[in-house]
Design a protein around this nucleic acid. Structure first.
Lengths: 210, 210
DNA sequence: ACTATATACTGAATCTTGCAGTAAAGTCAA
DNA sequence: TTGACTTTACTGCAAGATTCAGTATATAGT
């Protein structure tokens, strides 16, 4: 029987609607462009177009490039209809998985250097992606967008990513400053700085943007 | 043979270090307190303490409450050592999964109402958690923290969450204002507003905090 | 000619989630 | 005090997703 399409299926289907792609291109394009809103493994992304074919949302045909075979996927009319219907379904709740932040919550099991190290790792991961998206925006201005009619969407999407990256980077700085004041990671409890902080947060005020 | 501990194992182990818990308490406590840095399913969280026992990081004993049996887990010395070692290992890269933001990127497959609906759903999900954490900070000030010596960690952790929530909420507002200017979701391309936005982003400036 | 990197995938084991199911304990109201 | 509803306290199983290893061709640079 036919499998059920997941959010990942529709994400891949939406890319397929732009043009026909090979499995390889689709997989890598999905990783590049969806990484920060819908991160999925290479393996899964290779399986999705197959599922789309089973569902009747796409067709495959094989192209030879030398001795190699490449699977080229094309969206069907039924696929376009399904995509359109998807837009009015409910979304899944957001999910933020950030181990470095977890390490802060449990920082008392290790040294100050340990937590600071975790923050450094987070900073470098975020920094890479931050830089990449800033450069992408430059390329839209210079060379244009690969699908020009979609520029308004890509740029609004990028705005989200940049705001998130900036916020995470600002918090990392703030956390470092805070940790630098700690003599140790353990048993500090409600310090005066912590109390000030808690008071701000309880009034829903941002301690990072004074 | 012994299973390998995952990040989730250590997250549960860190909770176990605070006091002995039953499987039920542990599961629900983990969902409440780790939701926004390490969201895991109830099912997985029930399995983790069993794995900890297999690893020698915890012990179980059964307590009767009437006709019921509850599994009570306690951390071992070896578990404490393992926790301590964990703090100096590398963290996994961050992962942000937000379907509503994906819907913005592919908004051209549906109506303006569809995207705006997705944004409403995101706003209400975030709003709930935002409110909960603000109230939690109030409770730390009034009634204190359940593990008072850890207040400095919880509050720094909460700062992260509040900053993220505020950023997402500000972006939702911004996105709504932007979408309200669109006559349709499709084929707008590089509008003058989009160009202004792209120019700001390419210079790594925030369009939300003018 | 050789090496490294990119292309182009697949199978299998393991990890994780979602869902259904079971059943006792507690709570409140008629 | 009986009945209805919620909370406590889990487990089994199917399906979804990730990780890892493996296979093999194409291409670019030295």
């Amino acid at each position: 029987m036919a499998p059920t399409p997941t959010t990942s299926s529709f994400a891949v289907l939406a890319l397929l609607d732009l043009k026909p792609w090979t499995g390889y291109e689709l997989t890598h394009q999905a990783q590049r462009s969806l990484r920060y809103a819908w991160p999925k493994s290479e393996r899964l992304l290779y399986s999705e177009p197959k599922k789309l074919v089973e569902l009747g949302f796409a067709t495959v045909h094989q192209e030879a490039s030398g001795k190699r075979i490449r699977n080229v996927y094309t969206i069907t009319e039924e696929g376009r209809r399904a995509l359109n219907e998807w837009t009015s379904t409910r979304t899944q709740p957001p999910r933020l998985e950030i181990e470095a932040v977890l390490r802060v919550l449990f920082a008392d099991h290790g040294s100050r250097e340990d937590v600071l190290g975790a923050l450094d790792e987070l900073e470098s991961d975020i920094g890479e992606h931050h830089q990449a998206i800033v450069e992408l925006m430059g390329s839209y201005l210079d060379g244009g967008h690969p699908f020009p009619q979609r520029t308004h969407l890509s740029v609004l999407f990028a705005t989200f990513q940049i705001e998130m990256f900036k916020t995470i980077e600002r918090w990392i700085e703030f956390a470092r400053d805070e940790i630098d004041e700690w003599p140790t990671t353990q048993d500090l409890g409600m310090t005066s700085r912590t109390e000030t902080l808690a008071r701000l947060l309880a009034q829903d005020q941002s301690p990072l943007n004074p």
